[in-house]
């Protein structure tokens, strides 16, 4: 109960350029689906179309195979957590949580039971009489969650819910949200621009750019098997090193369509004695000069310059290589990604 389907959705504001063009997507029931992409990519608009806060210019939204064209947002059995929580500032926590139930004419005893139950789950029992203004950011976040959960919706929508929290609280809430998803067993649709959030919580990720879906996959597939250059460069931190093949000296692409090649910063092996031989003719060897070294504790990121562009690589070797004049990076064939002229992935 809680699958979502968008069919041929186009959306434009005031007859201007389309924000979203011919979008088709299916969000499976019970999934934790994250919509991610750079700002202005249409992810929030997509979310609002699902909720019904925006109407599509053309196309249709289905929830559980039912068209939502004439269904008001309040009747879609959807709950939403807003970026700024959108709590009702004049109501206390209890009233905030209860508001939707009252509007849906839920009986008093039933309401009390639900509120108590939810308050316990999110840990707000002691704050029910407080106004949002008296709560900390984390507590407000929990009120927003509780307000959404209490309606026991088919679909749970969250629009960058963690962006206003500090880093530590955000990490904690990520874990709590994952647990919540497992416990509640409903569909979560989650918008973020933070790939850590996407990768850590999602069962499905929909990566968007310019109003179109770039890739819809599991986090693992998105990272290991990017469908195009955009996905490859967007997912992963630091992002994938990518180059036009014909700018790399002494390297011939294994397939004629390949125009770009890329590799993850973690894939590069450092060779200190620079007279290494290729084990395979498609392997890549590049010589770089180190510019900066970023020490992150468990790992170290080097920012280097090669003749054809910047190279980032990541290593766990603690000894400082910054003094080396030039080092050599070795990339075996299976760690390389190839893309054609349009940026589409090509396999050997």
């Amino acid at each position: 109960m809680g699958s979502i389907e968008l069919k041929n959705i186009t959306k434009s504001y005031d007859n201007k350029k389309n924000v979203i063009e011919d979008l088709n997507l299916k969000i499976p029931d019970g999934s934790f689906t994250v919509l991610i992409g750079p700002s202005g990519c249409g992810k929030t608009t997509t979310l609002r179309l699902i909720v019904g806060l925006e109407e599509p210019t053309s196309g249709e939204v289905y929830i559980d195979d039912k068209s939502m064209e004439k269904v008001e947002p309040g009747d879609r059995d959807i709950a939403m957590v807003f970026q700024n929580y959108a709590l009702y500032p004049t109501m206390n926590v209890r009233e905030n949580i209860e508001f939707g139930l009252i509007n849906n004419k839920v009986k008093k005893e039933e309401r009390d039971k639900l509120v108590t139950e939810i308050a316990e789950i999110v840990g707000l029992e002691d704050f029910l009489q407080k106004k949002p203004g008296e709560l900390s950011g984390g507590q407000r976040q929990r009120v927003a969650l509780a307000r959404a959960m209490v309606k026991k919706p088919k679909v749970f929508i969250m629009d960058e819910p963690l962006s206003n929290l500090d880093a530590k609280l955000r990490a904690q809430m990520r874990i709590e949200l994952s647990e919540l998803h497992q416990k509640m067993n409903t569909t979560f649709v989650y918008v973020t621009h933070d790939q850590t959030e996407a990768m850590s919580m999602a069962t499905n990720i929909i990566l968007m750019n310019d109003g179109a879906i770039q890739q819809h996959d599991t986090p693992e597939k998105l990272y290991e098997d990017p469908a195009n250059l955009f996905t490859a460069e967007f997912i992963g931190s630091p992002s994938m090193n990518t180059y036009e093949i014909n700018e790399i000296p002494d390297y011939n692409p294994p397939i004629p369509e390949a125009k770009y090649v890329g590799f993850r910063p973690s894939a590069a092996e450092v060779i200190l004695n620079s007279t290494s031989e290729k084990m395979n003719k498609n392997d890549l060897i590049i010589k770089v000069k180190i510019i900066t070294r970023e020490y992150l504790g468990s790992e170290i990121i080097y920012n280097c310059e090669s003749g054809f562009g910047k190279v980032y690589f990541k290593t766990f070797q603690k000894e400082d290589m910054s003094d080396e004049n030039e080092i050599t990076l070795y990339l075996p064939e299976q760690k390389l990604f190839y893309f054609d002229e349009e940026g589409k992935r090509v396999h050997i």
Binding site: V51, L53, E72, P73, G74, D75, I78, A79, M80, F82, Q83, N84, A86, L87, Y88, P89, F99, G100, N103, N104, R147, K151
Partner: peptide
């Protein structure tokens, strides 16, 4: 904020 009014709409308020 518009969000608060949208939240109320989702809470099925007229």
């Amino acid at each position: 904020p518009n969000e608060i009014i949208e939240a109320a709409k989702l809470d099925n308020a007229t």
